[in-house]
Amino acid sequence: MSGSVSRFTLALGLAAVVLSLVTLVGLPTPLQAVTATAVLVLLPGQALARLTPVTDAALGALLVLALGLATLTAVSTAMFYLAVWSWQACVVTMGAITVLACLARARTEASS
């Protein structure tokens, strides 16, 4: 049985691409803080949390934060150890992680 990819998955992936670009181009400080937080923590956290079959909203929301922060920590630390760190590289990587997680989710949705 095959299904269709949900709009939320598409929106999440698209938002990751657009906001990553916007963050890299730069915005005035308060807006930059909002977009950077979304790209670095919230969107990847949401995309990764959706790969886990969470049914409880509170646990799901907590996982968004925990997974977003933990993944960003892992990515940033690895980049420092590899001596390739820059915050721009982190933005690109977290955007890519979000898109990949959305693709994985889309594949599941399409096959269900």
Binding site: Q32, A36, T37, V39, S76, W85, S86, W87, C90
Partner: peptide, 8 residues
Amino acid sequence: ATILGATG
């Protein structure tokens, strides 16, 4: 470092 750099 990443959050401070990216958010400004």
